[in-house]
Computed example of a mutant assay.
Amino acid sequence: MSLNHAKHNEDLCNKLNIDKKFCDWIVTTAFYSALHYSEYQLFPFKIGPTEYASFDLYYDAFKTSRDNKHDTRKRLVYSNINATAGAAYNWLKDLCWTARYYNYMITEQEADVAVSKLEIIKTHLSKLSAK
């Protein structure tokens, strides 16, 4: 599911990126594509003898009052993919948050960087390179 969802969001991101008219949505679709690609890489996730089939099952098992899903997912990317992918993911998450909740006026340059951050994340996913 996550892989198909990731590709679906990436396809829309690429279509939007052609004319650069909706840069806030380029960033948003790049982020959600990265989110789903990351989940595809990370899950199922095994800790000792216990395997978590999905992010939601993992989150339900380990959430605390200080956690939210986005921060938990970001930590998983940093610690279980690598710091480069984690930094790209964090950048996308932050700019997506800005675009969705504070200021939708995203520049073409920011949109281009968002697409490149998605590509950076994808290069660090061993499950994609194995296909």
Rank of each mutant, 00 (worst) to 15 (best):
M1F: 08
M1W: 04
S2A: 09
N4W: 10
H5K: 13
H5G: 07
A6E: 10
H8P: 06
C13L: 08
K15G: 03
K15P: 00
L16H: 05
N17I: 06
I18M: 13
K20G: 12
F22T: 06
C23G: 00
C23A: 13
D24F: 04
W25V: 05
I26P: 05
T28K: 04
Y32C: 11
S33M: 12
S33P: 08
S33C: 13
S33H: 13
A34L: 08
H36L: 05
Y37T: 11
S38L: 14
S38A: 15
E39G: 11
E39Y: 12
Y40G: 05
Y40F: 15
Q41G: 04
Q41V: 06
F43M: 09
P44W: 02
F45H: 01
P49Q: 11
E51G: 00
S54H: 06
F55H: 02
L57R: 14
L57W: 10
Y59H: 12
A61M: 03
T64H: 02
R66V: 09
D67E: 03
N68L: 14
N68P: 11
T72W: 09
R73L: 12
K74W: 01
R75C: 05
L76W: 06
L76Y: 10
V77M: 07
Y78S: 00
Y78H: 09
S79W: 09
S79K: 10
I81E: 00
I81M: 07
I81G: 06
N82G: 00
N82F: 02
A83E: 12
A83V: 10
A83N: 08
A85L: 10
Y89V: 02
N90D: 15
N90W: 01
N90R: 06
L92C: 01
C96G: 10
W97M: 14
T98E: 07
A99E: 02
Y101N: 09
N103T: 06
Y104I: 11
I106L: 07
Q109V: 05
E110K: 09
A111K: 06
A111G: 09
A111W: 05
D112E: 13
D112R: 05
D112N: 12
V115Y: 00
S116Y: 02
E119H: 05
E119M: 09
I120L: 07
I120H: 01
I121P: 00
K122W: 03
T123V: 03
H124W: 01
L125T: 06
L125P: 05
L128V: 04
L128A: 09
L128N: 05
S129K: 08
S129R: 11
S129W: 04
A130P: 03
A130L: 15
A130G: 04
